[in-house]
Amino acid sequence: MLNSDQIRAHFPALASGAIFFDNPGGTQVAQETVQYMERYLYSHNANHGGRFHTSRASDAAIAEARLAVADFLNAARPEEIVFGQNMTSLTLHISRSLARTLKAGDEIVVTRLDHDANIAPWLLIAEDRGCTVRWIDINPEDCTLNMQEMEAAITPRTKIVAVGYASNAVGTVNDVKRAVQLAHQVGALCYIDAVQYAPHKPIDVKELDCDFLACSAYKFFGPHTGILYGKYEQLDQLTAYKVRPASNYPPTSLRRALKALNPSPASWVQ
């Protein structure tokens, strides 16, 4: 039996006696999250990529977090995990890179059940590149996606299918695995917004075979940070919009970061 008082004790914000019903705005932060962030800021807050100790320790902390998220999503490797300001910003960034692969006449599929963070970025690049947007409607009786419409909308001209795992408005859980299959049948990519799904049920990106999946740590007691999973081969091929000194490769692995922090092989995490 769950002890609600014991659980509430992990969340400093609840000490005020307030009751929060603000899941669309995020969950309250757990005490353990605050303590870890405090240790980071006190002990090794630094710019990344440096050769001095605090920078290497900071790199290792991020790499360790990346490994934890890779486990959380069952990604094949930690280099497939990207952090950003939030899901919206990450989707805008990745859509800009994907736009370079599109040409006039290509098609992008979006749904009327999605949060605008998984709609607006695709509408913007469609306008920029002269692509056609195809909309998938909902079944009004139960607020589910009309999968028959999706099957008809995805054609050999489709390049991107954007779909939510669960609706932020009504909680509908969508058949995203089927959406991935339909996209891949015509050689298209599938981008999944899992922000509302990730706090409630397990996610296995390898089993889904999705190309990209985004969620937000602040929906499950973490800091206000966005998370993006991308298949390594996709991240490696895309052109990143970045400053010139930044790496051209996907995120650094935990092993490489810890090796930079301590060159002794005995200290590396295997």
Rank of each mutant, 00 (worst) to 15 (best):
H184T: 06
A162V: 09
P202M: 00
A166F: 10
L145K: 01
F212H: 01
Q185T: 12
G171W: 03
M150P: 00
S167R: 02
I203N: 05
V176G: 13
A179W: 05
E207L: 13
A214F: 12
G187C: 07
G222S: 06
L182N: 10
T172D: 01
V195R: 04
R157V: 08
K206L: 08
V163S: 11
L189I: 09
V205D: 03
K159F: 11
A166E: 06
A152R: 13
C210F: 11
V161Q: 10
Q148S: 14
I154K: 10
E151D: 08
Q148R: 15
G226F: 06
K177F: 04
T144D: 10
D204L: 03
D175A: 11
T144M: 14
D204H: 09
Q181G: 15
V173I: 11
I154P: 07
A194V: 01
V170L: 10
A162M: 09
H224K: 12
A162Q: 03
G222M: 11
L213M: 03
G187L: 03
T155I: 06
V176W: 05
I203K: 09
A183T: 04
S167H: 02
A214C: 10
A198P: 06
L213V: 02
L145V: 07
V161S: 14
H184P: 07
T155N: 09
M147I: 15
Q185C: 05
K219Q: 10
V195L: 05
G226D: 01
P156W: 00
Q181S: 12
A188C: 02
F212C: 07
T172M: 01
C210N: 03
N168H: 10
A217G: 07
N146M: 06
A198Y: 02
T155H: 05
K159H: 06
V161L: 14
V176D: 08
